[in-house]
Amino acid sequence: MTSAVANSPFEAPKSGRWLLFGWLAFAYLIAAQAISIAISPPDRDMGDLQKILYIHVPAAWNMGICYFLVAIYSMRYLWKRDERDDLKAAAAAEVGTLLNGLTLVLGMIWGRPTWGVWWAWDARLTSTLVMFLIFAGYLALRAFVDEPERRAQWSAAAGLFGAINYPIVYMSVRWWRTLHQVQSTPDTLDPSYALSLRLNAFAILFIAIFFIRRRYEAALTERVAEHELQAAVLGGSSRG
């Protein structure tokens, strides 16, 4: 077994501790949601609707963290040419797209009873949707290019191009007049809301970290398997 590892440029990951991390992350999410629903009274304007924000806002924040990771790992890949950075960027992009989609759907569910419309073509909503489409394109690019070297380089470029849009999404409510409200600060939030929001933001962060790690492990194991299969077929020479 150990001799087989030498056929691949990197080892297959072992994931005992991360499994425990995952269980804890989901347990913490349940606890955070239960606590925040219990301690936060209904909002004076929107009543219970305010509880949707405990997932919508953390999903939006963590989507930003995921896209930031995509940019970091993509740049690192172009610099150091370590294939593992490419796989990490891909995992972060996939989780970021997931949270992006969740942000959009939850925003719509909140917007219908609050604003009166499911969707408005304002700068914040539109740029968030465009961001989602850009990374859907990124994931499609990865799916449609088979050669790992080429896929890594191209998706690093596409990922960087996509990630530079995130500051625009985040700042759009400040730069431009939108239907979407600007970011809340602790001053504009009831203390119990601010506490609940933070609890849930960390919960989604832990879930996102777990997802990225697991996705990366799956991709890396697959690459190791490909390397080793190739080595087996070629009779032991280690060519990537």
Partner: peptide, 29 residues
């Protein structure tokens, strides 16, 4: 959404581990 993605990742991981085991058995053969 979260649970669906969890199952997707877990199944991807299972599949890639099976592929790795297959590759290693092929290497041993």
């Amino acid at each position: 959404v979260l649970l669906a993605y969890l199952f997707r990742v877990q199944s991807l991981l299972r599949r890639s581990r099976a592929a790795l085991a297959h590759a290693r058995s092929a290497g041993g053969a």
